[in-house]
């Protein structure tokens, strides 16, 4: 019988001190329940890092296809979730590295995903609104028109009284500014 076996769980991570967790004995005994209880969370987490449905669906599939056969069941719920969050970090880092040459993606992903929790951290929710509020008027306007109101670049340009080319420049600069403000909020 497996109950009682997992009261203490030691997590060993290379280069860090071993962590010991006291578990309540919650276990997953089949992969279908793992999928049903975690699929939406994994998808939403991945979407929050790629921002589009086709990539989010592909990476969500990759996480489960790779992870489920590796799990030895029954397994404690926190252990399975930690395993899934590690898989999410891995596929996201690989995605940004492979398609955009990003070398710092691991750090970016690690900063925002906490172990044992497949949801974005609470401080993240509402952060986009706070970032927009801190932007200069024109930068905030172009990003609100594009991201919140769904304007095309041409429509946004018309609303702001600039050429489409200038709207694109405004958009690029506004995104860079938003990234700077977001990074300062995290630090």
């Amino acid at each position: 019988m497996y109950p009682g076996t997992y009261r203490l769980h030691v997590q060993l991570v290379a280069g860090s001190r071993p962590e010991v967790f006291v578990l309540e004995g919650s276990v997953y005994t089949d992969w279908e329940t793992i999928y049903q209880e975690n699929a939406v969370r994994v998808y939403r987490l991945i979407f929050s890092r790629v921002g589009n449905r086709p990539d989010a669906e592909d990476l969500t599939s990759e996480v489960f296809v790779k992870s489920l056969p590796q799990l030895s069941l029954p397994a404690p719920v926190p252990q399975v979730r930690a395993y899934l969050s590690t898989a999410v970090r891995s596929v996201l880092a690989d995605h940004w590295r492979r398609h955009y040459g990003a070398l710092l993606a691991d750090v970016e992903v690690d900063n925002v995903i906490r172990p044992f929790d497949l949801t974005p951290s609470p401080e993240e929710s509402g952060r986009a609104g706070r970032v927009l509020a801190l932007l200069p008027e024109r930068s905030r306007q172009i990003l609100e028109l594009r991201f919140l109101r769904g304007y095309s670049i041409k429509e946004a340009a018309g609303a702001m009284g600039v050429s489409p080319g200038n709207a694109k420049i405004l958009q690029y600069r506004a995104l860079r500014l938003a990234a700077d403000i977001g990074a300062r909020m995290l630090s």
């Binding site: 999928y35 699929a39 939406v40 998808y43 939403r44 979407f47 929050s48 890092r49 790629v50 921002g51 589009n52 449905r53 989010a56 669906e57 969500t60 599939s61 489960f64 955009y100 970016e108 952060r127 986009a128 609104g129 970032v131 927009l132 990003l143 991201f147 919140l148 690029y172 995104l175 860079r176 938003a178 990234a179 700077d180 977001g182 990074a183």
Partner: peptide
């Protein structure tokens, strides 16, 4: 930096990050 800021703003739209039920069932 600009890409990741764009992704974050995109995700801020309510409901944008909800999966298609058909996808969840298909997978």
């Amino acid at each position: 930096e600009a890409l990741q800021a764009a992704v974050e703003l995109r995700t801020a739209q309510p409901g944008a990050d909800l999966p298609d039920r058909d996808f969840i069932d298909r997978l």
